[in-house]
Simulated scan of single mutants.
Amino acid sequence: MKTLLIIPCYNEENRLPIDELVHFIERENEGLSFLFVNDGSTDNTINILNKLADTFSFVKVLDLQQNVGKAEAIRTAMLKYTSDEYDYIGYFDADLATPLAEVNQFIAKAEKFDPIILMGSRVKLLGITDIKRKWYRHYFGRVFATIASSMLKIPVYDTQCGAKMIKSSVIKVLFKDSFISSWLFDVELLFRLKKLPDYNTNPTPIIELPLSKWEEKGDSKIPISYLFKVPFELVSIYLRYS
């Protein structure tokens, strides 16, 4: 199975775990390509990414001259590189809070069940998963996920985990239009997914995968003040698609 993994980067010079990236890329490259999106960074991020691309033939860099935000950076990359070359295209956060090793689990489930979208889920299961997350972010996430699940009418556990993989054949439709919110676009993506004809014909349109490991790395790009905007953006998304 051919897979492209998009990693959006904005001023990641001091956060991008280069050693971890290189170690994984050197060992796990069969059928897997990488696309790093430089989202208008003002530090040395682009030079670091270009060095990776020069070293590995299956690593590409998309350089956006202006910062457009995570949602638009991913949308631009999805539309630019969607082709018959890939079966699935996914995205992970640049800090690798979701370790790259989890990609293998995504690919295995995609090959077995052929879903439209696979979503990483940060579920703490004793003795099975290693999820490290600040307690207040966990509880805020649970409240948010419960509300989002109710609006979507889908029993989804974790909409906001930054690890997802999507069937290439539906990407042009799902990402055709800009998103309302740069940070809640994952919820909007699920609303769009429910409107696809494939959603009702595919026996397993969505798969949530409990991640074996996830670690909050800190230095979040989301300002605290944004939390006050979340309810309004969530309602705006709901009204657009309901």
Rank of each mutant, 00 (worst) to 15 (best):
R137V: 05
W135Q: 13
A110N: 02
G141W: 09
P155C: 04
I89A: 05
D158L: 10
A94W: 04
K164S: 11
G162F: 02
L152Q: 06
D114G: 00
K164M: 11
M78Q: 03
I116G: 03
I166H: 05
S169T: 08
V170T: 00
V123N: 11
I171H: 01
P155I: 00
D130N: 15
M165Q: 02
I131Y: 02
A110D: 00
S168A: 14
V143E: 06
L100K: 03
V143G: 03
A108P: 00
L79G: 00
K132F: 07
G90Y: 11
K124Y: 06
A108Q: 12
A163L: 03
E85K: 13
K109A: 12
F140A: 09
D84A: 15
A97E: 14
D114Y: 08
L100Q: 00
L118I: 10
S169C: 04
P155E: 03
W135P: 01
S121T: 14
I166V: 05
V123E: 13
Y157A: 11
D95A: 13
M119E: 02
Q160M: 15
Q105C: 06
Y86D: 08
Y136A: 14
K134Q: 10
M165N: 01
S169Q: 00
A94M: 07
P155T: 04
E85Q: 09
K167M: 03
S149C: 10
M119A: 07
A101E: 12
A97S: 15
Q105V: 13
I131Q: 05
F144H: 11
G162M: 13
K172T: 06
G90R: 06
L100V: 04
V156N: 08
Y157Q: 12
A77S: 03
G141S: 05
D114V: 06
I171S: 01
L152G: 07
Y86E: 00
A110V: 01
G127V: 04
A77E: 01
Y136R: 14
G90N: 08
V156I: 15
R122L: 07
Y86R: 08
R133L: 14
T129V: 05
D114C: 03
C161L: 12
M165A: 02
G127R: 05
V103R: 03
D114Q: 12
T129S: 14
I166Q: 00
K112R: 12
I89V: 09
F106N: 02
K132T: 14
M151C: 15
A94S: 15
L96N: 05
Q160R: 09
K167H: 04
A163P: 08
D114S: 08
